[in-house]
Amino acid sequence: MPVPCDQNPITLASYLDGELAPDQIPAMHEHIATCPQCAIEIAELTRLKHGLRAARGHHTPTLEFKKKLQQQVAPPRRPRLNVLRFIPAALALAATLLLAFTWTQHSRRQDAFSEVADLHVNALASTNPLDVISTDRHTVKPWFQGRIPFSFNVPELTGTEFTLLGGRVVYLHQQPGAQLIVAMRQHKISVLIFQASPGQALPFPASTEAGAHNAFTVETWQSNGLRFLVIGDVDATEIERLAQSLKQANS
């Protein structure tokens, strides 16, 4: 019969699991060296430990499951965050493009109005401002036949503050057009008429109220395929009155 051992089996296991307090380890070593029962128990537990190592990583997850879980765990905000991060930049870019586009359009219009003003000034500065000199609209209108590829009506200005002085042929953006010079007291007003061909649309807004450009007052509108521009150094209300009579004559 072996001498009964009072060693607690839990202490033996703690020793093997590395959980025994360091100050108890020398005593444990001494005991195992003298107690065959505990030595056998230690050997058996060690053997068990070795056997159980095979259970580590025994079951391995599939790659698909790992990917699935990674997607579940990955912070979902990251991709959205990247998109959000670009929104201010995109807005800024869009705003810049819009501004550039608007400015370009605006400056094209400004350029177009400047050209119209040039035509007006050019005519007034010329020693021969008119090709046809007549206050009679029935003389001026037929004169343009064969000179320009379209026809228009000259309103009856007799009895108004406006006096028709005559007309001439002008070109704007390689398009021929008619220029009528109308006098109002000492002021001279140009009426410019061009074809509003869709392919070669002149860079004017569809229509404007009389507005100031380079100190000239300009009004423009489109009617029956024709582009009308009225420009002069008079008040907007007077330009507007002349424009109204032209609109009525050509509606």
Binding site: Q37, I40, E44, R47, L48, G51, A54, A55, H58
Partner: peptide, 22 residues
């Protein structure tokens, strides 16, 4: 259950492979 005796299981375990433990 005392594990302080030399059991036949010890001998059995010694002969068996890890599959048995698993």
């Amino acid at each position: 259950v005392t594990a302080h005796t030399v059991t036949p299981e010890l001998l059995l375990l010694q002969q068996e492979d890890q599959q048995t433990v698993l």
